[in-house]
Design a protein around this nucleic acid. Structure first.
Ligand SMILES: [Mn+2]
Ligand SMILES: [Mn+2]
Ligand SMILES: [Zn+2]
Ligand SMILES: [Zn+2]
Lengths: 138, 138
DNA sequence: TCCTAATTGCAACTGAGCTGCATTTAGCAC
DNA sequence: GTGCTAAATGCAGCTCAGTTGCAATTAGGA
């Protein structure tokens, strides 16, 4: 369990309950963004069964604290990945098999200033996802 | 009613029914992406009431034919905008008031080759949206 | 150990979007 | 124009992700 996450939780007055701890461990051990249902399923298998609604509530809370990153791949459910120790990055998903791959790049950072000047918005974030066909499915 | 849309429909063996025509007119007159529910609401007001399920089915079909573009702003429902006569572009939405603005740019085109080389995927498309705070809300 | 705010689980709910099916309609052939 | 048929529609009921209300439980500081 990463120290910085524990600290953020404490600062925000959040308790480290057993369900929450189990959920965080699942999230941290997942290299790719996973859905609430997947978190739930893994917890059941691992004898740490917690309610699905608790999964949802915790994911929402962690997102609020900026500890997990929501990834909306427009293909079913929302997915989440922990932020800590991972560079800001984006994803590509295969239309055939659903395979998700991390893209270790972000072409948007440099663009933010331009968009802010153009729109007068204060930009808070962006979402960028690619879809395509993986080597097996193409 | 744009000619090229009618042509595409005909080619695909689709009929130009009254509900479909009314829906297309709403879509074409909307400068920004709108939701199925919004399309439905405007149709009701305009004395062209059609069923909401017909709206969904038509939007799905038009998307399949590549005539409308789905825009997932992760803030509620899916939105749609007609493609014809509009350059490929992206959007920014305000977290405060929900205002959506067209961004007449796409920084991704140049990147596609790089991502394809990196991942061996055949890239079919991408989604890019910004969130932030508009001048009124910031 | 005690206390209280935070958290949980359960059950019931919401809301977007989809499916099955009987009825209607566009558009083509005659 | 009439008749025909595949496409499309409306209705009702469904699915599935995610949320809400609430009583019972628990973490963790005093
Ligand atoms: Mn990732
Ligand atoms: Mn647009
Ligand atoms: Zn980025
Ligand atoms: Zn683009």
């Amino acid at each position: 369990m990463v120290e910085s996450i524990l600290e953020s939780l404490k600062t925000a007055g959040k308790k480290l309950t057993k369900p929450r701890k189990a959920l965080l461990e699942i999230l941290e051990s997942s290299p790719l963004p996973i859905t609430a249902a997947e978190v739930y399923a893994r917890l059941r298998k691992g004898r740490h069964a917690i309610d699905l609604v608790t999964v949802y509530r915790n994911l929402a809370m962690l997102q609020e604290l900026g500890l997990v990153n929501p990834v909306g791949l427009h293909e079913g459910q929302m997915r989440y990945e922990v932020c800590h120790g991972r560079e800001h990055h984006h994803h590509i998903q295969c239309r055939g098999c659903g395979l998700i791959v991390d893209l270790l790049l972000c072409p948007i950072k440099k663009l933010t200033d331009l968009v802010e000047r153009q729109t007068k918005f204060a930009i808070e974030g962006h979402a960028l996802e690619f879809v395509g066909w993986c080597p097996q499915c193409r």
